Structures are given as C-alpha cells and as structure tokens.
Amino acid sequence: MWGTSYSRARQAQTTIVCRECGGTLRAERTCHDVYLRCTACNKVTQVQEHIDEMDEALESFMENVFCDRV
C-alpha cells in the first residue's frame, strides 16, 4: 500500500483516566512514537503502562499504527 493516499488519525480521545489528575487521556502519534497525553494536566505516558485499561477507542487507534512505533 505504499504510495497510496489515505489518512490515518493522528490522535484519538480515550476514556482512560490519568493517574496523576483524573483527567482523560488522548492517544497521539508522531512519525516515530505513540503515547498517551492527559487532556487536563498534559502529562505524557507510554501506551504500555495502560494496556490493562485499553478501551475501544485506543484499540481502534492502535490498529492503524505500524508495529515499529509501539
């Protein structure tokens, strides 16, 4: 599919709760990394820290991320 023009979401809002402040986490990706950022306190955490809390939004988001980004 290289060269095909289609877009993948760069971020997705989850229902996962921030362990620092209780806000919600948003999944975000760059060209080289995927992480979770709190929408309230802006703290960044790794996806691996929240695998046991993964919701449908994060699971759907991760389906479109290349394996070498995780």
Results as ranks from 00 to 15, higher is better:
1 M>T: 07
1 M>I: 04
2 W>M: 05
5 S>W: 01
6 Y>E: 13
6 Y>D: 13
7 S>M: 05
7 S>L: 07
7 S>R: 08
8 R>P: 00
8 R>Q: 08
12 A>Q: 14
12 A>W: 10
13 Q>I: 07
13 Q>H: 09
14 T>E: 01
14 T>D: 02
17 V>N: 02
18 C>Y: 00
18 C>Q: 04
23 G>C: 08
24 T>I: 09
24 T>F: 15
25 L>S: 03
25 L>C: 07
26 R>E: 11
26 R>C: 09
26 R>S: 02
26 R>T: 14
29 R>I: 03
29 R>T: 12
30 T>N: 03
32 H>Y: 12
32 H>N: 14
35 Y>C: 01
35 Y>L: 01
37 R>N: 04
39 T>P: 00
40 A>K: 11
41 C>M: 07
42 N>K: 07
42 N>M: 01
46 Q>K: 05
46 Q>H: 08
48 Q>H: 13
50 H>C: 09
51 I>N: 10
51 I>M: 15
52 D>H: 06
53 E>M: 04
54 M>A: 15
55 D>F: 08
56 E>R: 11
57 A>E: 13
57 A>K: 05
58 L>I: 05
58 L>D: 05
60 S>D: 12
60 S>H: 11
63 E>R: 12
63 E>I: 04
66 F>W: 13
68 D>Q: 10
69 R>S: 03
69 R>M: 12
70 V>C: 09
70 V>T: 09
